[in-house]
Design a protein around this nucleic acid. Sequence first.
DNA 1: CATCAGGGCCCTG
DNA 2: CAGGGCCCTGAT
Length: 327
Amino acid sequence: MTQPLILQQRQSIELLPASPFRFDATTHKPDHFPAADNEWQPGIRWQTMRWQGTPLGLRIENQGTVDEPRISLAIWSEGPLRQVFLDGLLDEIRYRHGLHLDLSEFNQRFQHDPQLGPLIERWRGMRPCNYNSLYEYLIFAIVLQNTIVRRSVDMMQVLFGRYGTLLSFDGKQLYCFWEPRTMLGTTEEDLRQLKVGYRAKSIRRVLDAFVNKEIDEVDLRSKGTEEQRRALLRLYGIGPASVGYILGDVFHQWDEMNHISPWEQKIYSKLFFDVDPEAAVPVAQLLSLFKERFLGYRMLAVHYVWEDLFWRRTHEHIPWLEKLIRR
DNA sequence: CATCAGGGCCCTG
DNA sequence: CAGGGCCCTGAT
């Protein structure tokens, strides 16, 4: 049994997101597979984070309302944290959570849209949210490829167990991601032993790209979408599907809508054309519909439709959807 | 028991 | 640009 690293130091900070901000729908995405680096319950999310090499435990807690949002952030660490470290950390957390995102233009533009209007009414203040660094997100993207949800969860768990750090804070035990250099001594063969299959090669080569500084997350943030896309596609094992998610979630490209995978195609066909998911509408037709209706906010608009569906699924049986989700 | 596709991507021809 | 192969798993 692995001994967890006990995080003893704790401090609290208040965060003020741009209004409107809907806490639960932002901090929990029911369509994401569960991972050992976080836990959620209504009003609270626990999340581990490695920042500048230091493992941290975070608890973000809702203390406000949609229109007067307030978040209490508690940070656990092994030892005391310096102010410069904290300042950088908070900037990063604000960025990753999209706390600064001003939704007013989006809300105004689509509030009377027959399909989006009611969803904005219901989910006003929701935004995409990503807690992970680009490197970490890439690992998720790789284990997600070409498999069923259960196996993705298992692969992630094995990787955390082998390379991650188990943290204990606030009564929780959660794994913290490793840094790329922690994996440096690992060969493709070592990774294959962990039953990630051919993904071993991708994991190893993405690691090299980070260690060799062929890609730099912070640097990429200030670049345009197409430059970001090219940089991501250069990574071995990362193709258009993964890049689409990354441009939206990691780089906040709210208009990104370039690629639709087969299972998404079926879901969009049902949601936007109300046809049998198996009689899927051609991807080109879906893309042009999104362009017509949502240009400028395609990713964000679809996010509302998508999340609404998966929230519904948490309390309602949706037979056609169940058939499309391979657990 | 065998076969096959899966919340992709690479490589080959 | 189409199509085979890839680790493994669960569905059929």
